[in-house]
Design a binder for these strands. Structure first.
Lengths: 225, 225
DNA sequence: GTCAGACTGTGAGCCGGAACACCGCCTGGT
DNA sequence: ACCAGGCGGTGTTCCGGCTCACAGTCTGAC
């Protein structure tokens, strides 16, 4: 059932079963296909989404058309909160990286929950705080690390969320093209490709179609920082 | 009186006079001198601070000792929230850029306010959301803009918060050395110096000791994006 | 007043990574 | 089964910005 994934979601942290059930009931389900856009940067909109299955990418486009990905979100993670608490247009474009299903909640609905339930506010605060911490880390990486370092870090991050451990290494089906990976770490496709090829030639990982198998996580970690 | 500045602080948004007074009463005052460190990255601590006078810088240090500033905060702005909602060590070092006074609140105190007062939670949520939005902008700038563009943007940001309009331009006493400015935009001191010299030679601004006078804000804005 | 140390200004060289220019492969559509 | 377009792989060139190396200036401590 839906509630299984949602119960894991940090947004629901601290809610008892009854409350979680009620909250779920007031949410609407949305299904999209790979490549579909949920909303564009600059759009109006004040719904909060929680991914229940699949992955989406949060991206921004610069004036001259280049793209930059802020995050890849998977099951349990939410997006769209910014326009809720800091009113304004959507600050990023959200696109499905795989076929996806998610649950959404309107501003007004959420407002009702917030007022009555301090736990929900706490959950949201801790989510935002975690995101802010992560955003700050990304900034530090952009300033301090080179491209291979950022690639290594991105792979480790993806593996911690989407990785499956097997005897030949950690299989990470990230579903991203190298182009998208490059946008995620803020580098060109070519440079990322070369970094990956280099890692592979050292035996740290194996490349597969839209996925990698990490074979020497320790070395990658060392390369990342 | 203290409450004047605090009433402006977003943290207090939506509180009536009586509540604001009570909240102020439960806060402790701290005074520090230029250069003093409030706490270091990695320290334990769970107090939330609001600057009432002066400026502080939030910074991180990389493994090899280089520094990066996340933000310059002035009167009304808060810091230290991350360790509150996303428990863990302090994620940045906070240093006074000028002599400063601030008010602080402990985790437990704040918790009591949160539970009873949905407005406080809302205020915090909108603060965090705004910070997150800003952090994402910084990331985009690092990826898309060159150093002069980021310098221009940083100056405009500082001027919007600390600028005084006069007939010869907007006076911005940022109190930062060029070294600190460089750490703020993620560039070397030399490159920032050259960017500033270039802007000055074009007549867009005038350089003074730890402050600038912006004379052509329009051009700077155009250069920034 | 003077001396030390921190801050600002500027040139020269070098290097990481972006841009460009290909090629081959694979995948999905008809 | 075929073809086209997207994706992955790689060498070459070129430029922004970091590093290094100084010189000049300002500030505050004694």
């Amino acid at each position: 059932m839906i509630t299984d994934v949602l119960r894991q979601a940090p947004l629901f942290g601290g809610l008892d079963d009854e409350a979680a059930e009620a909250l779920t009931a007031s949410m609407a389900e949305t299904k999209v296909r790979r490549g579909d856009v949920l909303f564009h940067e600059g759009d109006e909109g004040d719904r909060l989404y929680v991914v229940t299955d699949g992955k989406v990418k949060l991206g921004r486009t610069s004036a001259d058309g280049r793209e930059n990905l802020l995050a890849i979100l998977g099951p349990g993670q939410m997006f769209g909160e910014l326009s809720l608490f800091d009113p304004g247009p959507r600050s990023a474009t959200v696109t499905a990286v795989t076929d996806c299903t998610m649950q959404s909640l309107s501003h007004d609905e959420l407002g009702r929950w917030l007022d009555g339930r301090p736990e929900v506010a706490r959950g949201l605060l801790s989510q935002l705080a975690a995101r802010l911490r992560k955003a700050n880390d990304v900034v530090a990486d952009l300033v301090f690390s080179d491209v291979p370092g950022r690639v290594a870090k991105a792979l480790l991050d993806l593996s911690s969320r989407f990785g499956r451990v097997a005897d030949d290494g950690v299989h990470v089906h990230h579903d991203l093209t190298q182009e998208e990976l490059a946008q995620l770490v803020g580098a060109s496709r070519e440079t990322v490709n070369k970094a990956l090829a280099d890692f592979a030639s050292r035996g740290w990982l194996r490349l597969e179609a839209r996925s990698v198998v990490l074979m020497d996580v320790e070395r990658l970690k060392r390369r990342a920082r």
